[in-house]
Design a protein around this nucleic acid. Structure first.
Length: 278
DNA sequence: AGGGAAACCCGAACGC
DNA sequence: TGCGTTCGGGTTTCCC
């Protein structure tokens, strides 16, 4: 659920801080507590604690849906998956029922990786590329031109929705923003990628960037019970709006399952060309 | 190569 | 009210 805009929002908070929460930049890890073993993908809990203590936080970045903490020697990578969140507070902040990994800073600040559903993962690695190298391009990468994007689409014969959600194809889109982008681009979720014209590719890339930019501007979406302060959930075009009118034409939004994912679209605006039925 | 299914999880929503 | 069942989400893994 945290997709690119939500992760970007969290990254900005950790990096810059706000009225309630300090920036973590420059702080030094003083202690680590792993409360749920499987949250740590690698290395072992013992090695993690031994290695992470004493390292400075030099930079905090986002790549796809990963948070990337550049430490003195290593990289700490965190993927929030479904329900993960990162909380910052004082060392005596009350423990949460879903706290999985806690880092205490020498500066008296605590960073908590909270995750009710335990899907989230953290890695401590000396080379971030070992994990991030599998990701496709960033949607906002200026080198990703409409022509290049069109070519990437031609390289596959796949349903466009699952392809857009494939992180090795493009990094950052999840179920929400994919449905939103396809509706804005007026493309059916089942459209085969190599049937997409250059014009449509340009429209799709622009739509992806627009919905992501709006998500970031609104500090992400807060859905289910995971509230992160954003309000993009109040501006969905199709996501979770089954039966409600399409904002463009008024046709009731339809729902189907594509690649095991709930998929919301307008049957009027996002018609599947009759040259590609089924 | 692509697609479907299952696995990992559990709070919420639903059905009775 | 309270119980049991189903759902959904990101990703990996396995199978066809």
């Amino acid at each position: 659920m945290p997709e690119l805009p939500e992760v970007e929002t969290i990254k900005n908070l950790l990096r810059k801080g706000n009225g309630n929460s300090p920036s973590l930049l420059g702080m030094v890890v003083a202690n680590a507590h792993l409360l749920w073993d499987r949250t740590l993908a690698q290395p072992s809990p013992q090695e993690f604690t031994r290695r992470v203590i004493g390292q400075h936080v030099h930079e905090i970045e986002r790549r796809g849906k990963f948070l990337h903490f550049r430490l003195s020697r290593d990289s700490l990578l965190i993927h929030l998956r479904m329900s993960g969140d990162l909380l910052v507070g004082p060392l005596d902040m009350p423990a949460g029922a879903y706290d999985r990994l806690v880092l205490d800073m020498q500066e008296g600040v605590r960073l908590v990786f909270s995750d009710p559903r335990k899907f989230g993962r953290a890695w401590l690695v000396d080379e971030a590329q070992a994990i991030l190298g599998a990701l496709g391009p960033e949607p906002f990468d200026p080198q990703l031109t409409p022509e290049e994007f069109h070519q990437l689409l031609q390289n596959h014969q796949r349903q466009i929705k699952p392809l857009l959600m494939d992180q090795s194809f493009l990094a950052g889109l999840g179920n929400i923003y994919t449905d939103e982008a396809l509706h804005l681009a007026r493309l059916h979720p089942l459209l085969l990628s190599n049937r997409i014209s250059l014009d449509e590719s340009a429209r799709l890339l622009e739509s992806i960037r627009k919905v992501l930019a709006e998500g970031i501007r609104r500090n992400g979406a807060s859905i289910d019970w995971v509230y992160r302060g954003g309000d993009f959930q109040n501006h969905f075009r199709v996501y979770q709006r089954t039966g409600e009118p399409c904002p463009v034409c008024g046709t009731p939004i339809a729902r189907m399952v594509v690649g095991q994912r709930g998929t919301h679209y307008c049957p009027q605006c996002q018609e599947l060309p009759n040259t590609q039925e089924g």
